[in-house]
Design a protein around this nucleic acid. Structure first.
Length: 766
RNA sequence: GAGUCUAUAGCUCAGUUGGUUAGAGCGCUUCGUUGACAUCGAAGAGGUCAGAGGUUCGAGUCCUCUUAGACUCACCA
């Protein structure tokens, strides 16, 4: 044995595990009944982004590997199913940056070409994550690997979508949505980041029609949207305005008459008590617009520029430019009365960081209450147990006020919504396509078809926007029955609509009820482990979709782990330069050291500060284990030299035990019990720390030191403690423990077995 | 605006249902290398457990308030 442990052999060990089939559970013939007798232990891996290398956060899948290895050793049929995620907007965003470097943009391509480009790009990088997970020792069943772009997964997502449409759970509406004009897509509330912005409150006057020199002054943070105002609202109890029933205002700059409306929710004390109402560009105003049947005037287009609904001189301006122009013009007109400093929260795009533009746009929505209710019930009753418990609270709070879920995204990369429009039935569908000359053309079908062929439009299609009352079909063939002029919806699903269905889809759930044996055997799964930041995005959606599709919860325990931070507790980010690359670390110090460093002494749910120092310290621990076993072997060799007939065994002879023997065995039993208990309770930090203390400071520092002066009667205790420790440590540091375990077998002719497939230790009887 | 969490040794953090002199890793000081390991060993310095009050025979651990920080959610002009 070498003087120091060399982690470069870790790859060979992984291959051995792979070959042994230890990662792949056998599904019995009657999976349903078998499940009733003995329930398997199942984890579905949160699929990492298919085209990104792993970061330190992914290395935390160690937690799942610990659970999986522990349960495998307990003898449970154990499945840990790997996969990768196409990660819709995330990936498209990365790809667009890549295009940008080549001086191109997404607008240069038709939809189909762009999709193919991204697909190729992702495929090129897809194996990266896989190789890295293997390097970290994750005992995933690669024979069952899945990808969210697999056709069978997409088919299942489509099937569920169809069911939801038929059951009235999916609907179309032109509501106000969070729209990023730079990314060119709508987002759900969760994808909007609220940032505090130091801005101003602008006060300006709207003349009252028919009342000379009388005005209403409004206060607003968004003067530019006044061009789309269709009312001014005041509180009916506000005495300042009570004589204005039925009066109209003249909207400055536009010179249009708009009504004064009386709305209880208006705060009399805020500003002037009068609010300009822009139903097409503000969520609150949208509600008022609906309530008072106001006109909806959209002034911003999907590209963020002012459109034809504004006076000519403002057309084409972006919001901030328009703001300046409006302020200037209002000031010149003598209508601006006050500008006050004001800071408030403004929604920003979580991807590109630009301000979100609330606009009305036709989108697809999931009616969420019918899904949220059973999910809430399941979590409330702990049928799905959220751990640590405090996340249960925030889950329930979020579920309580949950809003309908906009599931359509105006991007190319993802599952295209399986809906077809017959254009002859829907003449006003707006279409954008690249024509034969390579120019981008936008218009409605009615107009476009006069100068273009259907084939050209279809071929160069970038996107379409169908009015909410458009007639659609759930299959292309149905749409084709009307006429050949058919286009599929160009929106794609929110990635979470797809990954929300991941647990039952990966296991082979079938819409026709003939599920795969895997599904019958492994579903519901046991544990779902992920970081808390996607509790709402993903965990909540999986619970809702799982119950909806299968009638059963998708997992029994949702274990939330925390964020890996740097040594100062700072979030790792490329811009800060404090990123620790798990691959670099495992190559330098060994995957075992990294794994140990990620879990040792970490309290459930608290941040995990990782540093090279910490990893180095764990490398030293791994090396200590190496040398301890090396010494045990050398000691036995020495004793064997003196007595060649010596039998080497870990069988304990009670009559020969000394106080030191009894002491270490008692401590070994204690650590066996506590490790088991801690693993059952997800206390990995405590478990690993206790093992570290026991092995190093009890076994090495005290017992082994003491054994140096003893004879052959110490051998069985040495071997017992060593072997048991290897087993207890194996889930945490699988490579070194497996290596030593096999060494011992070779050396002393023990029964041959892989540690990964060995049994979890019980208390030693002595 | 609503909610959650954190505050323990120079640094990063453990400390399960309250119970004997509060722990680890790294760092620091002194000493030790011819047969497991210097990726080591021995010894040691260092904490009024953020502050104030309360419950209790007993509080780092439970309650209240204060201060400081982190985070999540949210349509207030």
């Amino acid at each position: 044995m070498d003087k120091a442990y060399n982690p470069s052999s870790e790859g060979q060990i992984y291959d051995q595990w792979l070959k042994s089939g230890a990662f792949t559970p056998v599904v019995p013939k009657n999976p349903k009944e078998a499940r009733l007798k003995k329930e398997p232990f199942t984890i579905i891996l949160p699929p990492p982004n298919a085209n990104n290398p792993l970061h330190a956060g992914h290395a935390l899948f160690t937690v799942e590997d610990i659970l999986v290895r522990y349960h495998r050793m307990l003898g449970d049929p154990t499945l840990w199913l790997p996969g990768t995620d196409h990660a819709g907007i995330e990936t498209q965003f990365v790809f667009e940056k890549y295009l940008q470097k080549q001086g191109k943009s997404r607008f240069d391509y038709d939809r189909e070409t762009l999709f193919k480009l991204i697909f190729d790009y992702v495929n090129e990088n897809r194996d990266v994550a896989k190789t890295q997970m293997q390097r970290l020792g994750f005992s995933l069943d690669w024979t069952r690997e899945k990808f969210t772009m697999d056709t069978d997964h997409i088919a299942r997502v489509y099937a569920i979508f169809n069911r939801m449409v038929n059951e009235g759970l999916v609907y179309r509406d032109e509501k106000i949505v969070n729209y990023c004009t730079f990314c060119g897509t709508a987002f759900s509330n969760l994808e909007v980041e609220h940032k505090n912005v130091n801005s101003h409150l602008w006060y300006f006057k709207y003349p009252i029609v028919g009342e000379k020199d009388r005005f209403i002054t409004v206060a607003t943070t968004r003067p530019e949207t006044m061009l789309g105002d269709t009312a001014v609202a005041v509180n009916p109890k506000d005495k300042r305005y009570s004589d204005l029933q039925g009066k109209k205002l003249l909207l400055p700059l536009v010179n249009k008459e708009i009504p004064i409306i009386f709305e209880d929710s208006i705060d009399i004390k805020f500003g002037t008590g009068a609010v300009k109402v822009t139903p097409s560009h503000s969520p609150e105003d949208y509600e008022m617009g609906k309530k008072f049947n106001l006109e909806f005037v959209r002034i911003f287009d999907y590209d963020g520029r002012a459109n034809q609904n504004v006076p000519e001189r403002y057309r084409g301006l972006f919001p901030n430019q328009l703001r300046q122009a409006v302020i200037t013009d209002l000031t010149e007109a003598g209508l601006m009365t006050k500008i006050k400093d004001y800071s408030h929260e403004v929604g920003h795009c979580y991807k590109c960081g630009r301000p979100i533009e609330p606009i009305t746009a036709p989108q697809w929505f999931v009616k969420i209450k019918p899904l949220a209710e059973p999910a809430t019930k399941a979590v409330k009753s702990d049928e799905v147990k959220i751990f640590p418990a405090r996340f249960k609270k925030s889950f329930l709070a979020w579920m309580k006020d949950i809003k309908d879920w906009p599931i359509s995204r105006q991007i190319v990369w993802g599952h295209r919504i399986p809906v077809w429009y017959n254009l002859d039935e829907n003449q006003t569908i707006m279409i954008t396509f690249i024509d034969q000359k390579g120019e981008t053309v936008t218009g409605n079908w009615e107009t476009l078809i006069k100068t273009n062929s259907y084939q050209d439009i279809k071929k160069g299609l970038q996107s379409l926007i169908a009015p909410t009352d458009s007639k659609f079909y759930l299959s292309e063939s149905d749409a084709l029955k009307i006429s050949p002029n058919v286009l599929q919806e160009t929106d794609t699903f929110d990635t979470w609509f797809s990954s929300g269905q991941w647990p039952y889809s990966t296991l082979g759930w079938s819409p026709d009820g003939h599920h795969s044996p895997d599904f019958e055997y492994f579903y519901p799964t046991t544990v779902l482990d992920t970081m808390w930041d996607i509790l709402f995005f993903w965990v909540a959606r999986m619970i809702m979709m799982g119950i909806y599709a299968t009638g059963q919860i998708p997992f029994k325990v949702a274990h939330m782990h925390s964020r890996v931070t740097d040594s100062k507790g700072q979030k790792m980010s490329k811009s800060k330069g404090n990123v620790i690359d798990p691959l670099v670390m495992s190559n330098q110090y060994g995957a075992d050291a990294l794994r140990m460093a990620l879990v040792i002494g970490v309290a459930p749910g608290s941040d995990i500060s990782l540093s090279e120092d910490k990893i180095r310290a764990q490398r030293n621990f791994v090396n200590k284990i190496w040398n301890a076993s090396r010494f045990v072997e050398m000691l036995i060799d020495r004793l064997q030299e003196r007595n060649p007939d010596l039998k080497i065994s870990s069988e304990i002879d009670k009559s020969k035990l000394t106080t030191a023997d009894k002491d270490i065995l008692e401590k070994l039993n204690k650590i066996t019990i506590s490790t088991t208990k801690n693993l059952e309770n997800y206390r990995f930090g405590q478990a690993s720390e206790d093992l570290y203390q026991f092995f190093w400071h009890e076994f090495c520092d005290i017992y082994i030191e003491n054994a140096k002066d003893r004879g052959e009667e110490t051998i069985s205790v040495l071997l017992t403690v060593l072997e048991t420790s290897l087993k207890l440590l194996h889930p945490f540091i699988p490579f070194i423990t497996e290596t030593i375990y096999q060494n011992l077998q070779e050396k002393f002719n023990f029964k041959k077995e892989l540690l990964i497939s060995s049994s979890w230790p019980n208390e030693i009887k002595y």
